[in-house]
């Protein structure tokens, strides 16, 4: 039995080592997802990996390393073997960990940013019945109302310290108003439902995709989108941006890919090129459009600069305004 086992092991070892000289990639890759299977980030990564497989000619296995509010998975990316066979998806929460003292790693220092894939702007979405009652028709009315009633308008973010919670703080800074941010640990969907009920909160600061069903049904109305341009599709096309209404608010959640530091340059280039090509894959684009996710590609250098700007400037200020104590 033991002998047989040794022989089999030897065969396997020789088989796998004989091709070690071959060009990258010569075995399957692992993509770490810091969020649970079936969620928005996971589905996005899985769709992307299918496109990436076509480029690399190898299978890419999605590995959901969840827990501790995403910290576990993000740290696992930084701690992975830098052989180019393990990369991971990084999300917005990533730039808040160091400030919140839940991780020692900084996004732009301890990781090698590969590219950004997607960005979804936040919107100021409120209960329609409430808005009509108070004569709020656009963002200006809303800001005026908030100035008259400081701290009284209750807005739902998603869970504590999450992207949408901080979005509320960002808006307060830019518009110079005071809102009461209410957290929904179960996620954005329950916040949106609460806003549609209009009992506990008056509105939400989440992305349009999250609030879509109630915007369509007319329970909620989006007053302003925190993006440069309107979204180009029939459902959201009518929604004005904040910029159009004189408020320069730009805030979005985003998803990107990261590598551990120290990956060989030639391997890194190969992977980055494959990613760039995969973003243009027709199936991937179709998936993103259906899911209501916007593709917003940034290459490695741009992404790194973006992360630094977020982690050091934009996000800490917004967190402070949202009432998150650091």
């Amino acid at each position: 039995m033991k002998k047989l086992f040794a022989v089999v092991m030897f065969l396997i070892l020789t088989l796998s080592s004989s091709s070690a000289m071959a060009a990258y990639p010569e075995k399957s890759l692992t993509a770490i997802c810091p969020w649970g299977a079936g969620g928005g980030t996971d589905s996005c990564l899985r769709a992307f990996c299918q496109a990436l497989e076509k480029q690399l000619g190898q299978t890419v296995i999605v590995d959901n390393k969840t827990g501790a509010g995403g910290v576990t998975g993000h740290e696992a990316i930084a701690d992975a073997e830098p052989d180019g066979y393990t990369f991971g998806m990084v999300t917005f929460e990533f730039v808040t960990y160091h400030a919140l003292e839940v991780s020692d790693y900084k996004s732009y220092l301890n990781y090698d940013p590969l590219c950004r894939l997607n960005a979804d702007p936040a919107g100021i979405t409120v209960n329609k019945a409430w808005a009509e009652k108070n004569g709020i028709k656009n963002l200006k009315d809303f800001i005026e109302y908030c100035k008259k009633h400081p701290g009284e308008v209750r807005m739902g973010g998603s869970s504590a310290n999450s992207v949408w919670h901080i979005a509320g703080g960002y808006f307060m800074n830019v518009a110079g108003v005071e809102l009461k941010m209410v957290t929904y640990p179960d996620g954005a969907a329950s916040a949106v439902q609460a806003a549609a009920q209009g009992v506990d909160i008056e509105g939400v600061t989440v992305s349009l995709a999250e609030a879509r069903s109630f915007i369509e049904s007319g329970n909620l109305i989006c007053l302003g989108l925190m993006a440069e341009e309107r979204i180009n599709n029939e459902v959201f096309g009518k929604i004005p941006t904040c910029k159009e209404q004189g408020i320069n608010a730009f805030y979005a959640t985003w998803r990107g890919l990261g590598l551990p530091n120290g990956v060989d340059a030639s391997i890194r280039t190969k992977l980055a090129d494959a990613c760039r090509a995969a973003v243009k894959d027709a199936d991937f684009i179709k998936y993103m459009t259906n899911a209501g996710l916007g593709i917003a590609y940034l290459d490695s250098a741009e992404f790194k600069a973006f992360l630094e700007q977020q982690e050091e400037k934009d996000v800490p200020a917004a967190m402070k305004a949202a009432g998150i104590e650091l």
């Binding site: 079936g38 969907a189 069903s213 109630f214 049904s217 329970n219 998936y287 259906n290 899911a291």
Partner: peptide, 21 residues
Amino acid sequence: DAVTAVLLGAFIMKGIQPGPM
């Protein structure tokens, strides 16, 4: 619940938005 959250993703992926409409 958790399973229907995943199912929601499946509907959206097919271009159907569940909801009152």
